[in-house]
């Protein structure tokens, strides 16, 4: 069992400032659900004095992650942005009376979320959206991204969107939705029709082509970016057999990578897909 201080337990069991501020002046998001912890802070800031009037958080994570977030929001309230910038992860840990060594990353996460929020306040970055609406599930492209890319590049056709974002390039089930978004972007007032019909049952050939396509176009580039690689060995019915290559061979997170590939294939091709290592 972790040796948590009374202060950690208190902030875990009675977290302060849980929630989300409406129309926040700054948002900071860090982490994701797959990796086990994620934190979102929203701030209300007095634009004249740059003083933080209110701070709220939402956290997915263990007790120390929740306690660190709670403390962070407490520390932020009443401080100016300049003062807030000076809060370190050690300040968060100290406020909690210390954290177990293995849990220090929870305080670091708090500090990182704060950095994101400050950058966002200064207009340097847009926060990543945790619950953004994903339009193209094959390539994980959000509605926001499609809108942004369309406006910035004056894209008017679905084909252009696919070329610029890959959205709609695989299973094609979101093409109707992309079209609706485009019409909305360019203010063509027409009732938006969203294609929610379930994709048709794939033939074996279509399935194999789709799996190859996803591996080639999405998964391999992502692994290669980290010095790894993967090879498609065979497809037996719904069993996709792959082999790790390069850095992936020795990567301790292999199981997780395999799982994320499976998740992706299941999402696009069908729930019955399993991915195994050769």
């Amino acid at each position: 069992m972790w040796d948590y201080t009374e202060k950690v337990k208190d902030h875990f069991l009675h977290p302060r400032n849980v929630g989300e501020i409406e129309n926040p002046d700054a948002v900071g998001i860090i982490g994701n659900i797959v990796c086990g912890d994620a934190l979102k802070i929203t701030l209300k800031v007095d634009k004249k004095t740059h003083k933080i009037i209110d701070a709220k958080f939402q956290t997915f994570g263990c007790a120390s992650a929740i306690a660190s977030s709670s403390v962070l929001t407490e520390l932020l309230k009443g401080k100016t942005i300049e003062e807030a910038q000076k809060i370190s992860n050690q300040d968060i840990a100290d406020y909690l009376g210390g954290l177990p060594e293995e849990k220090m990353h929870c305080s670091v996460m708090g500090r990182e979320a704060l950095e994101e929020a400050i950058k966002n306040y200064k207009g340097e970055i847009q926060p990543i959206v945790l619950q953004e609406k994903i339009v193209c599930k094959c390539f994980n492209v959000s509605e926001e991204k499609i809108r942004k890319v369309a406006q910035e590049n004056h894209l008017t056709t679905v084909e252009e969107i696919t070329n610029f974002t890959k959205a709609g390039g695989a299973c094609g089930s979101c093409l109707g939705e992309i079209e609706a978004i485009l019409k909305d972007v360019w203010s063509i007032k027409e009732p938006i029709k969203i294609d929610t019909s379930f994709p048709k049952k794939l033939t074996n050939l279509q399935k194999i082509a789709l799996i190859q396509d996803i591996l080639e176009r999405e998964i391999r580039p992502r692994l290669q970016a980290d010095g790894g690689d993967i090879e498609l060995i065979d497809i037996e019915g719904n069993k996709v057999i792959v082999g790790f290559r390069a850095m992936c061979v020795s990567c301790p997170m292999g199981g997780i990578t395999l799982k994320s590939i499976e998740d992706k294939l299941r999402e696009v091709v069908g729930e019955e897909i399993t991915v195994v290592e050769e």
């Binding site: 977290p15 934190l39 929740i66 945790l130 994903i134 970016a225 590939i261």
Partner: peptide, 18 residues
């Protein structure tokens, strides 16, 4: 779940590739 930013919506996060 009330504390969590993920609520009840099913979400696919970004995969760990490292």
């Amino acid at each position: 779940r009330l504390i969590s930013p993920f609520g009840r919506e099913r979400l696919i996060g970004k995969a760990c590739t490292s």
